[in-house]
């Protein structure tokens, strides 16, 4: 699994560049490159459905983020309690890594998962649903409640975006842009 490590290191480098670079547009492009590297990792871990979805979602996210950052590279303040903030951040990340390494000992070894629930799906999935793509049979057959909740979240999110970016309903906005329809 050497190539997996290499592409993961590429993703990490992309993330570091995205965090540390000054220009916002370059930062968005770097995080998008990291996401495309992640798509290749999903493909190597034998998850083609997730890879397709990640690839497509990544491009949509890139378009939206560029919309948010275009012509907006403003200066932002670097003063303030620099040392205190960095200390708090480092302590917090250290606590997270400690807990994560304690929990890591409880996990099964990489490459040999516990398949207590999924063995039932692998055994019975094709006979019960007649779908040859087992991921689709779990997503829409055995665990369709999850998909229903996910569709509800998407619906709520779209309504929330429409409410947040609204033109009418606030007084000064109505006066300023009365003739603007949208």
């Amino acid at each position: 699994m050497l190539e997996l490590h290499l592409i993961l290191i590429f993703v990490i480098i992309g993330a570091i560049i995205a965090v540390e670079i000054k220009d916002l547009l370059s930062s968005v492009v770097a995080v998008s490159a990291a996401g495309l590297g992640l798509c290749i990792i999903f493909l190597m871990l034998k998850a083609p459905d997730v890879a397709i979805t990640q690839l497509v979602v990544e491009i949509f996210l890139l378009v939206i983020l560029i919309r948010a950052t275009i012509r907006r590279d403003l200066p932002f303040s670097v003063s303030g309690r620099w040392f205190f903030n960095t200390l708090i951040t480092v302590v917090f990340i250290g606590m997270f890594l400690t807990v994560a390494f304690i929990c890591l000992k409880q996990l099964p070894e990489f490459g040999s998962p516990l398949m207590r629930v999924s063995s039932f799906y692998l055994k019975e999935g094709f006979d019960k649903t007649q779908a040859t793509n087992l991921i689709s049979s779990i997503l829409l057959g055995f665990r369709a409640y999850d998909t229903l909740g996910e569709a509800t979240i998407l619906f709520t999110s779209v309504i929330a975006v429409l409410v947040v970016i609204r033109k009418k309903g606030r007084k000064e906005v109505m006066e300023k842009e009365d003739k603007d329809e949208f």
Partner: peptide
């Protein structure tokens, strides 16, 4: 491979897209 985490991640990616928007 284990199909159950892939299904969960497939749901999670779309939810993360919605919340990020």
């Amino acid at each position: 491979v284990d199909p159950l985490p892939q299904v969960l991640v497939l749901t999670s990616i779309v939810i993360s897209l919605a919340t990020t928007a």
